[in-house]
Design a protein around this nucleic acid. Structure first.
Lengths: 216, 216
DNA sequence: ATGTTCTGACCGAACGATCGGTAAGGTCGG
DNA sequence: CCGACCTTACCGATCGTTCGGTCAGAACAT
C-alpha cells in the first residue's frame, strides 16, 4: 500500500520522458559532443536534478539502443514479415524500417551512428549486425524464389538496401512535407525497381568488369 | 631535392602524414570521442610533439573536410561528368563517388558523420549540401531526357542515391575481398535498375508457383 | 484545522579525472 | 653553435558524477 497511488501530481519528470529529451539531443549533437549540462538545459532543470531521476549518461544511451533494436526485431516478427512470398516480405520489412525511423528517429539515429567505443555500444552493434543478417536471409530467399536478381551477393544487397533506407536519418524530419508512408513507397520502389525508366544494361559504363548479365 | 628524399631519417612526421593518422582515428572512434592523447599514441609520439607539427584538433578535422569536399567537387568537373547523356553522367558520378570513398575513406566518413556543432563543421555541411544539389540537377536532366523515372522528386532521388553510395562507409574497408570497382558496379546497377528481376509494379502477389523450399 | 514529520524534486557547489593546449628544456644532426 | 624535434610537466577549463542541503507538498496524529 501507499505505493501506486493515483494522484501523482508531483513527478514532473520520469526516466522515460528524460530519455526522450536526452536522445533527441544525442541525435542532433551526437552522443560524445553532448554534455550533461546540455541535457539538463534541454529538460529545464539542473544537472543534479537530472541525476536525481537517472543513473548515468551511458544508461540513457543504452535505453535508446534498446528501444531501437527491440522495435527492429519486433518488426521481423509481424505476420506480414513472416508469411508469404519472400519478395513481399522483403518489401514489407523495408517499408516498416522506414516507418520505424519516423516513429523512433532519435533512437535509430543514435544507434546507427555509434562507433563501438564502449561495451554498451559494442553490444548494440552486435545486435544490429544480427538484424542485417536477417535481411540478408530474406533477400537470399527471394533470390531463390526468382523474384530478386541473383547476381548480387545477398549480404551486399542487404547492406545496400538497409543503407538506402537508413540514410534518410540524415535529412528526414517528422512533420515535414513528405509523409513517412509516401517516403516508404518511394524507397521500396527505388530499391526494387531502380531509378531508371526501363531496364538499362548494367555493364554500360564499366570497361572490363564482368558482372553477370541480367537474366532475360 | 630535400623533399621526397628516400633517406629522410629525421622528419618522421609532417602535417599531412599526421592528418592521415588523425583522420583514421577520427573515422574509427568519431571526432568527439577522440582525444589528443589518442592521436599522439597513434602517431607514436607525445602529445606535445604532435602539437609541434600542427595547430589544433579542429584544424585536422578541417583538413579532412577539405580533402573530401575538394575531391567530390573535382569529380564533377571530370569530362565524363560534364559531357554526354545525363544518365551516363549520373552513372559515372555515382561510380566515382564510390571509388572516392575507397581512396579517401577516413575523410569522407568524417565529413558524413559531422553534426555541425562548430562553424567549421557547419561550413563543411553547407558545401556538402551544394554537392547534393548538383546531383539533383543531374537527375533532373536525366528525367527530362526520359532516361530516369520522373515520378520521384529529383532532390529525393539524389539523396537516396547518394545515401546508398555513402552508406558503404559503415562496413566497407579497402583491402577487403570486394574490389572497389566491383562494388561500384553493383551500386550503380542497383540504383538504376533495382534489385528485382523484372519490373514489379505494385505489390504483385506472385504467389506460390515457385515455392521451392526455402533452404536453410 | 493545526502542527509535525516525512518524502521526493530540486539546486549550488564541488569532486577527481580528463580535456585541448602550452612552457621549458633536453637531444641530436648539421 | 643552431634549429628541428622530442620530452616531462603542467595549465585552466570542462567533463561526468556526487554531496549536502532547501523547499513544497502529502501523510498523519492530534
Amino acid at each position: 500500500m501507499a505505493k501506486g497511488d493515483q494522484s501523482a501530481v508531483r513527478p514532473r519528470h520520469d526516466i522515460d520522458s528524460l530519455a526522450d529529451i536526452a536522445l533527441e539531443v544525442f541525435r542532433s549533437r551526437g552522443y560524445d559532443a553532448t554534455s550533461m549540462e546540455h541535457l539538463a538545459a534541454a529538460a529545464g532543470v539542473s544537472k543534479a536534478a537530472f541525476y536525481h531521476h537517472m543513473t548515468s549518461k551511458e544508461d540513457l544511451l543504452a535505453r535508446g539502443f534498446e528501444r531501437a533494436l527491440d522495435a527492429l526485431f519486433a518488426l521481423l516478427d509481424e505476420p506480414a514479415a513472416r508469411e508469404g512470398a519472400a519478395l513481399d516480405r522483403f518489401r514489407y520489412v523495408l517499408r516498416r524500417v522506414v516507418e520505424l525511423q519516423h516513429d523512433l528517429l532519435a533512437e535509430v539515429t543514435v544507434l546507427l551512428r555509434t562507433r563501438g567505443n564502449s561495451p554498451t555500444e559494442r553490444l548494440a552493434l552486435d545486435r544490429r549486425r544480427q538484424f542485417d543478417r536477417r535481411i540478408a536471409d530474406l533477400i537470399e530467399a527471394a533470390q531463390q524464389e526468382g523474384s530478386l536478381r541473383a547476381d548480387i551477393d545477398p549480404h551486399l544487397a542487404a547492406r545496400l538496401a538497409i543503407g538506402t533506407a537508413t540514410s534518410i536519418i540524415e535529412w528526414y524530419r517528422p512533420g515535414g512535407k513528405l509523409p513517412a508512408a509516401r517516403l516508404a513507397d518511394q524507397i521500396v520502389a527505388m530499391t526494387c525497381s531502380g531509378l531508371a525508366t526501363h531496364p538499362t544494361k548494367s555493364s554500360a559504363v564499366t570497361g572490363q568488369t564482368r558482372t553477370a548479365a541480367p537474366k532475360r
